[in-house]
């Protein structure tokens, strides 16, 4: 069972529908106790980092996410929350990936629409050619301290990080749940990683 973190803002329907499409059950999680029933986490989606982080702190989910060792997929703001801090609200985030979140260089801003994602061949992108388009809607993106975790980049004004992976912690700046067949395939790839980790466990 995948837990989709509910931090009070934004669209959770799209991601839960998309997980159903790839054959995986999911449940909304809004407290750390509810994490007992799940073996993987999706941290979505729409929202601003400040209110999302405040909500995670109120519910104790911030500490639970910091100590989470199972598969984790952060999407858009959920990806940004994994880093040390964000320029959007000038406050600390979860800090499970090292680096800060900064405004991207391109105009128009927010960077809204379909753009090419060039990837390194990480299994997250299995079956998806490098350069395939995904849907973005954001103004900020993480700048990881360590380049080795970068698994995909996109260009808008300048090159920014579109996806990163540190073992089974993964983040994507685009919205796979809104990126047509490519996005569905990417979520299916994440789900197969989750199933692999279940077999190992």
């Amino acid at each position: 069972m995948i837990g989709v973190i509910d931090h009070g803002a934004g669209n959770l329907v799209s991601i839960t529908n998309a997980l159903t499409t790839v054959g995986e059950d999911s449940t909304l999680v809004s407290s750390s106790q509810e994490l007992a029933d799940v073996d993987a986490i999706v941290l979505p989606g729409v929202g601003a980092t400040g209110p999302a982080m405040a909500r995670l702190q109120e519910t104790g989910l911030d500490m639970a996410l910091r100590s989470w060792s199972g598969p984790l997929l952060g999407i858009c703001v959920g990806f940004q929350l994994l880093f040390d801090r964000s320029d959007e609200d000038h406050r600390p985030c979860l800090g499970v990936m090292q680096g800060n979140v900064s405004e991207i260089a391109g105009r128009p801003l927010p960077h809204t629409g379909w753009n090419d994602v060039d990837h390194t061949g990480d299994p997250l992108f299995s079956g998806i050619p490098s350069g395939e388009t995904f849907y973005f809607v954001h103004s900020f993106a993480p700048v990881p301290r360590d380049d080795e975790i970068v698994i995909a980049t996109t260009h808008h004004g300048d090159t920014f990080v579109a996806a990163a992976r540190d073992r089974n912690r993964i983040g994507v700046q685009f919205h796979p749940e809104r990126s047509g067949a490519s996005g569905t395939r990417l979520l299916a790839n994440f789900v197969s990683m989750v199933r692999t980790s279940r077999r190992v466990a």
């Binding site: 803002a9 934004g10 669209n11 959770l12 329907v13 799209s14 529908n17 998309a18 499409t21 729409v46 849907y135 809607v137 919205h175 749940e177 809104r178 990126s179 047509g180 067949a181 996005g183 569905t184």
Partner: peptide, 26 residues
């Protein structure tokens, strides 16, 4: 499975929250 923008009758932050939670992206 593409983005959905929804408008009409949104008057408050709570109205907007309800539309987003129904499945709108913008």
């Amino acid at each position: 499975n593409v983005p959905l923008t929804v408008g009409g009758g949104v008057r408050s932050v709570e109205d907007m929250r309800a539309v987003l939670r129904a499945g709108a992206d913008k």
